[in-house]
């Protein structure tokens, strides 16, 4: 596990991928930070909340290669034929991507230092927001890893990962539209002869269910200084599930018929 972690992590820096990701992150966050600085109003927690939007680009970049590249180059054989479980490879690669994600926060830490130097305020919300950020990153990385394990084509993997993350980020809007579509359909078709109020509650139930699944909104509370354990548990447990699915997808190679 550590061997895979070490190789993957160093590999980010042997190839331009890691550097580009860090550079991209520092440009995006730097832009937001310098705007805040110019208005003399510096809230790092808001910056972190804003950066979460860019998961949609940054996560595919750092996860697309994890398995797809190995599959393409044939190096994946090593993982299968070495005396260890493929689970360890999954965990190792996940940790490597997480470590890179943490290193990408270096720009945010530099902003924290500048804020302190410029007599701004760093409070508990800032640290809470970082926690929420990393928990969400863990979930998205595990998703990216799964898409990478499903294909040989890195671009394909990145595109699928992008779409999935975009979907998750927009889940609350999607929930709204889904519930209104359901309400409209029930209304127009008059199916089941429901009363209008129960149609509304049906639509709302669907929306609440979808919203409950939304990790993006769940981890938004940290910005306001509320520290919740449950969203972190949510993100990490689902990250574990996606890692398990990744393991199963890789394991499929052994028994699949094609």
């Amino acid at each position: 596990m550590f061997a895979v972690f070490k190789r993957e992590f160093l590999s980010y820096f042997r190839t331009p991928v890691g550097w580009v990701a860090i550079c991209l992150m520092s440009v995006i966050s730097g832009y937001y930070f310098s705007n805040m600085l110019a208005s003399s109003y510096v809230n790092i927690a808001m910056e972190i909340a804003y950066l979460r939007t860019f998961f949609v680009i940054l996560i595919p970049i750092i996860t697309m290669r994890l398995f797809a590249e190995e599959k393409k180059n044939g190096t994946i054989v090593l993982l299968y034929t070495m005396p260890f479980s493929i689970k360890e490879a999954v965990i190792g690669k996940f940790l490597a991507a997480m470590a890179l994600q943490a290193i990408m926060l270096i720009s945010v830490f530099s902003h924290i230092i500048i804020t302190v130097v410029c007599s701004g305020i760093i409070n508990s919300a800032t640290w809470g927001a970082i926690f929420g950020y990393l928990a969400l990153a863990a979930l998205f990385i595990s998703i990216g890893m799964l898409t990478s394990a499903m294909t040989e084509n890195q671009i394909m993997s990145a595109v699928v990962c992008f779409v999935v993350i975009l979907f998750i980020i927009m889940l609350s809007q999607i929930a709204d539209s889904v519930s209104s579509i359901i309400q409209a359909i029930l209304k127009v078709t008059g199916l089941y002869g429901l009363k209008e109020s129960s149609i509304y509650s049906a639509g709302n139930a669907v929306r609440n269910a979808l919203n409950w699944l939304d990790p993006y909104e769940k981890t938004a509370c940290y910005t306001s200084g509320v520290f919740k354990i449950v969203p972190i548990v949510f993100c990490l447990s689902f990250a574990a599930v996606f890692m398990y699915i990744t393991y199963r997808v890789l394991e499929k190679k052994r028994w699949s018929q094609s």
């Binding site: 409070n123 508990s124 509320v226 520290f227 919740k228 354990i229 449950v230």
Partner: peptide
């Protein structure tokens, strides 16, 4: 556990 594990850090 959502409510018991919610802390106000402000």
């Amino acid at each position: 556990l959502d409510k018991p594990l919610t802390f106000d850090t402000t």
